[in-house]
């Protein structure tokens, strides 16, 4: 392990090297006052360097010792398997879609949803923000939602519609989750559903990055947030961006931070993406926007498309699910099965 790995400023690193402290061991042997005089910094700063050095070398040692099963921060596949059993899922309200997803959108993972304009991306986003609040008694998560709107397409009127329908259909959800019907008397008010959706309106990509940075603190204060929806992750990065390398880097950094949030707080992250056309094998085809390197960033990728007269969702990429497609429909009551019996109720 080298001095270059220490999280200290470049000039201090330079001073350390110039004074002959090339390895961590050589630093940890020195005393604070000795280090301070050698590299001409205050004793406090020297203490800090020593602290970092001992931390880093402790980390170093545990990596070197490969016999133990608990490497620094590592987990065995077996423990992960056991943990995955408790991974909760958020229903999409469409049984067919839930089935191919293994029960819904998984917590602790980043899921990307993309499709042509008008296919229902925002609708699914709103539905998930409502569904995450289904109480535990009904097999839900009883959590809260963060909705990050970059396009201005979030309509509260529509959220209210979906929330009302969700409360009416609540007894149905307990069927999906446990087969034994429990008669639980949890009455929810649509207003309380609205109250538990934290809405951020983002107006530039800088704000988007800042918000993702800030979310860690925000969720620390609101622990029961179980889903983050970004609608859409694409918009600001697609307009007015000439430096494509910078764009890729910023996007990847953002995806990493979101992934970290998902794991740390055990919540689901849903990113909505737009589509673009791409010239592949002699013809123009649709593909999700933001480019090839972005397509590696998300754990799951679901593409929404028209199949004849039906809306379909297709699992394009997932480490644990097999690729499959399912039909869904967008109704007044929200996302439902495509052959769903609930007819559109005319709004008057």
């Amino acid at each position: 392990m080298e001095v270059g790995m220490l999280p200290i400023s470049a000039s201090k690193r330079g001073k350390l090297l110039a004074a002959g402290y090339t390895s961590l061991r050589s630093i940890s042997r020195a005393s604070a006052s000795q280090l301070a005089t050698d590299i001409e910094v205050s004793e406090d700063e020297a203490c800090e360097i020593l602290k970092y050095a001992s931390q880093t070398s402790a980390l170093d040692r545990s990596i070197g010792n490969s016999n133990t099963s608990n490497l620094y921060g590592g987990q065995t596949a077996w423990t992960m398997l056991n943990e995955e059993k408790f991974n909760t899922r958020i229903t999409t309200s469409c049984v067919d879609l839930d089935n191919i997803l293994g029960g819904g959108i998984t917590c602790k993972e980043v899921t990307e949803l993309g499709g042509v304009p008008g296919i229902g991306k925002t609708q699914i986003g709103i539905q998930l923000a409502v569904n995450v609040q289904i109480p535990l008694e009904y097999g839900g998560l009883g959590g809260k939602a963060i909705y990050i709107d970059t396009e201005g397409s979030f309509m509260v009127e529509r959220v209210l519609q979906i929330a009302e329908a969700c409360i009416e259909d609540m007894p149905e959800y307990s069927h999906h989750f446990h087969n034994n019907v429990q008669d639980c008397e949890v009455k929810m008010h649509p207003n309380s559903i609205l109250e538990n959706i934290f809405y951020f309106r983002v107006c530039s990509y800088t704000e988007q990055i800042a918000l993702v940075n800030y979310l860690d603190k925000f969720i620390e204060e609101h622990k029961d947030v179980k889903i983050i929806i970004i609608d859409s992750v694409t918009f600001h990065f697609r307009q007015d961006f000439d430096d494509m390398a910078l764009r890729t880097r910023l996007l990847n950094e953002m995806a990493l931070k979101l992934m970290k949030l998902a794991r740390k707080f055990c919540l689901a992250v849903v990113l909505l993406n737009q589509v673009t056309t791409k010239y592949i094998e002699g013809s123009y085809q649709l593909t999700l926007a933001l480019g090839d390197s972005w397509s590696h960033s998300c754990t799951n990728r679901i593409i929404l498309f028209w199949n004849g007269d039906e809306r379909h969702a297709y699992i394009d990429k997932s480490p644990s699910l097999k690729s499959a497609s399912a039909a869904y429909s967008v109704t007044t009551r929200g996302i439902r099965n495509s052959n769903s019996s609930c007819k559109r109720i005319k709004m008057v």
Binding site: N191, L194, E195, F198, Y199, F200, E207, A210, L211, K217
Partner: peptide
């Protein structure tokens, strides 16, 4: 980040 990020509103507040 905290200074730049937009304010949070609940959907109820918006309504």
């Amino acid at each position: 980040s905290e200074v730049v990020c937009p304010p949070c509103q609940t959907a109820l507040l918006l309504m």
